[in-house]
Amino acid sequence: MLKVDDINVYYGSIHAIKGVSFEVEQGEIVTLIGANGAGKSTILKTVSGLLHPQTGSIHFAGQNIVNVPPHKIVSQGLAQCPEGRRIFLQMTVEENLEMGAYIRLRHEIRGAIADVYERFPRLKERRRQQAGTLSGGEQQMLAMGRALMSKPTLLMLDEPSMGLAPILVTQIFEIIKELNQAGTTILLVEQNAQMALSVAHRGYVLETGRIILTAPAADLLNNDKVRKAYLGG
């Protein structure tokens, strides 16, 4: 479904992503794990079209999406829930959701909002509230709900557990599993490797801009090197 082939991405003269290739198949949860600064978010930004690879190709649903503007990539069914949530703090909860469905027709939006409220009842209670007044967990739910509004076939989640209390982290990962079971393919970027590998089918380990290891998630959980470097022993 998503095929990233040998991409190289630069920030000015800094070579951030060095010849990275990976694939996501329909129906999978795939996770990219790695330390802070390994290049995980850079890869997602490149897939979303916010950054452009110097070389290499990115195919989504059979089409090359390198140099396609970000807003067109969204309308092909690829949505991203960015790192740090990035919800529109000055807008209401419902307006945030409407923005998520920007590419969709007016009559589809009401139904999509109802779906999100069903999954996240908390958001419905707070629909008229400014998003900036929500708690961290609610903001994460809003960010995910907003990304779902475009009805993506592939959802990319960047650090959904960041800054959340452990109980909320568990809840967010439950939701990720549910979304996947409901048919959404997921590409998950996480520093919390333990949680990410426990829900994912496959994982890629990223170190300073290179993929150094790839295996089914269960194998990575038992891999000595991964345990030492990312799972705290």
């Binding site: 979303s48 079209g49 807003h71 920007y102």
Partner: peptide
């Protein structure tokens, strides 16, 4: 209006707005 809301979104966070499918 739809375009007005898009303006507010772009004004607050251009990159996030693009990820919503808004043509900045």
């Amino acid at each position: 209006s739809k375009i007005g809301k898009a303006m507010r979104a772009v004004s607050e966070d251009k990159e996030a707005a693009q990820l919503m499918g808004i043509d900045v």
